[in-house]
């Protein structure tokens, strides 16, 4: 086949909703886009372990501690599936880590915000995982097979995380005055960054059109953002918390909530590295990697010694 017919074959698969698999021909840009998106997603999972890991040793009850540990462990597992999915595109995990550590690869900016109180464990689960689910459920049908299959597993666990986050918020909102204050304070700090998680407006999103065409993306950033707001505002009402947006108003005609202007300066600033915790998050990842170098070397050296001994034995036996 010529490149032209490879391209036609690929396009036909996309149009007919046939999944693209690792051995299939794919355009270079499709591969690049997927590597960028999947590795960014994987990095978000492991960087995302940090703000929540921050409260494991301080969780207010043993039950909450156990649930939080299990949740952060799940995030690590998601990172693992996603790194594996990206590896099917011809990049190694070490290369992806290197891109993260050198700042070449991004991760979700939301994790550059600090987790300051216990209520943040509720807000992150409810809002951040809630927004992630909105983004991720359509990805279960994304055109690249390994990514879609990884996302099916991820989404099952994320919806559990979202529920447990909401339950933490609900417990606080039904609690004492200071607990209510803690919950409201967390909502105030996490609301706008969560809204920004869907990325820039469609007009300013450079990758959206092509990704939609390739059926990597199924909905635009603005469509998903609106859906998230519509659902979450109702949930906030249910537990008596106030969404920190004075312009928030139900629009009968549109059948959606209207909302106030998003501070995109803040968004781009955090993306560029000026968020409250960008430095800490990246340093924590780099430190874990660098301090772990001798451990990985030892594991490798030991595995090689074992292999050599086994081969030696087999030679002798033969």
């Amino acid at each position: 086949m010529t490149v032209h017919s490879f391209q036609e074959h690929f396009d036909a698969k996309i149009d007919n909703e046939v999944m693209i698999e690792p051995r299939d021909w794919m355009p270079d840009d499709y591969r690049k886009t997927l590597i960028r998106q999947i590795s960014q997603h994987a990095h978000s999972e492991i960087v995302g372990m940090l703000p929540e890991g921050n409260w494991i040793t301080r969780a207010p009850s043993l039950r909450r501690k156990a649930v939080l540990l299990a949740k952060v462990q799940d995030e690590g597992g998601h990172g693992l599936y996603l790194y594996s999915a990206a590896e099917t595109l011809g990049i190694t995990r070490d290369e992806m880590y290197d891109q993260l550590h050198t700042g070449k690869a991004k991760y979700s900016s939301i994790f550059n915000y600090p987790s300051l109180t216990w209520a943040d464990m509720g807000a992150i689960g409810w809002l951040v995982d809630g927004a992630a689910i909105m983004n991720q459920v359509p990805l279960c049908r994304t055109s690249y097979g390994p990514y879609a299959r990884a996302m099916v597993r991820v989404c099952k666990e994320e919806s559990f995380h979202q529920r447990q986050g909401f339950e933490i918020m609900m417990t606080l909102a039904n609690g004492t005055d200071v607990q209510k204050k803690m919950a409201q304070d967390a909502l105030n700090r996490w609301w706008w960054p969560s809204i920004m998680m869907f990325g820039p407006s469609d007009a300013d999103s450079p990758h959206t059109a092509q990704s939609m065409r390739w059926r990597i993306k199924r909905f635009t950033n603005d469509e998903l953002r609106q859906k998230f707001i519509d659902v979450t505002v109702e949930q906030a009402k249910l537990i008596g918390l106030t969404v920190p947006d004075p312009d928030l108003k139900w629009n009968e005609e549109r059948g959606h909530y209207d909302f106030g202007p998003i501070n995109w300066d803040e968004f781009w600033n955090v993306v560029k590295g000026n968020g409250p915790c960008n430095k800490e998050r990246l340093e924590a990842r780099k430190k874990a990697w660098e301090n772990g170098a001798w451990v990985r070397d030892a594991a490798m050296a030991h595995a090689e010694k074992r292999k050599a001994r086994k081969e030696n034995k087999e030679v002798k036996a033969a």
């Binding site: 890991g53 501690k65 952060v72 451990v295 594991a299």
Partner: peptide, 25 residues
């Protein structure tokens, strides 16, 4: 549990967190 998120290898980070959960249980 203090290792959670800071392990030298992702698989080991997950394994240690699992052990922490066992002890806590």
């Amino acid at each position: 549990s203090e290792w959670c998120g800071h392990g030298p290898i992702l698989e080991q980070d997950i394994a240690l967190t699992n052990t922490a959960l066992d002890h806590l249980g």
